[in-house]
Design a protein around this nucleic acid. Structure first.
Lengths: 124, 124
DNA sequence: TTTAAAATGAGAATGATTATCAAGTTGAGG
DNA sequence: CCTCAACTTGATAATCATTCTCATTTTAAA
């Protein structure tokens, strides 16, 4: 990855805004001081920085939502090779919500765990 | 919620396809037998069914991704009132990935937990 | 029945993100 | 310090998922 002023600006903006901004939010922040930085450059750099492990992209099953007829509480696993979505029993993380409530003092009404990796078929 | 044939079709299609389909996937499945069901109706019904708790929408922080300069492993909490995103220490779910690997036999390379509820400020 | 609320289809509109491409920048090797 | 290929950029078009609009149709309670 070569140096570029724009990438530096993007990374600095993210460092200075610990509020987990969206790309759009970040764009408007950057625009104030560096109006010449284009949206394409911003998205490109966010992707590159995330790819390099310098920043982290927080998301679920984007870009599109998945639907589930099973409303019993359970988690999900997405295979990064075949893209299939599997169910994971909620036994793997007992009392997470309770522990998180304790730790944070927030009122937790729901939570979601998404695992990613290789399913059995794709490990072969 | 009044009865409608289209909603019945959507729900049946979801029941018969335990593969956690996306809305688009579901649309193409439904099109085969019920080509008159429009995309708007599908999306509307998915939202309504999810709202009523009959089905479940699986997603993260949609519709837009958030970015985080902190790459240390940690989870997130989104306040449903103010929309702010907070960090949650990974202590709340020790060894989840290991337990999930054991249970599923899948190779897990990453996972993400998103809690939702009310933050301290918004509980007041 | 009557009728108001709920639901629909078709397509336009939106929002987030990615792709395209010509032009400018970077940096390793000579 | 040149050169040149690889890397980046800005501007904008394109795409993808989803939501909105609105005129028409259906549902169900009185």
């Amino acid at each position: 990855m070569n140096y570029s002023k724009q990438r530096e600006v993007v990374l600095d903006a993210l460092k200075e805004n610990v509020i987990h901004p969206t790309a759009e939010k970040l764009y408007s922040i950057i625009q104030i001081e560096y109006p010449q930085v284009s949206k394409a450059t911003l998205y490109r750099n966010l992707a590159q920085l995330a790819e390099a492990g310098i920043i982290k992209k927080i998301d679920g099953l984007e870009p599109s939502s998945h639907f589930d007829h099973n409303t019993h509480p359970h988690y999900h696993f997405i295979c990064e090779k075949c893209g299939r979505v599997y169910d994971v029993s909620c036994d793997v993380a007992k009392n997470v919500a309770e522990k998180a409530e304790e730790e944070t003092g927030f009122k937790i009404t729901s939570h979601e765990i998404v695992f990613k990796g290789l399913c059995k078929d794709c490990q072969k």
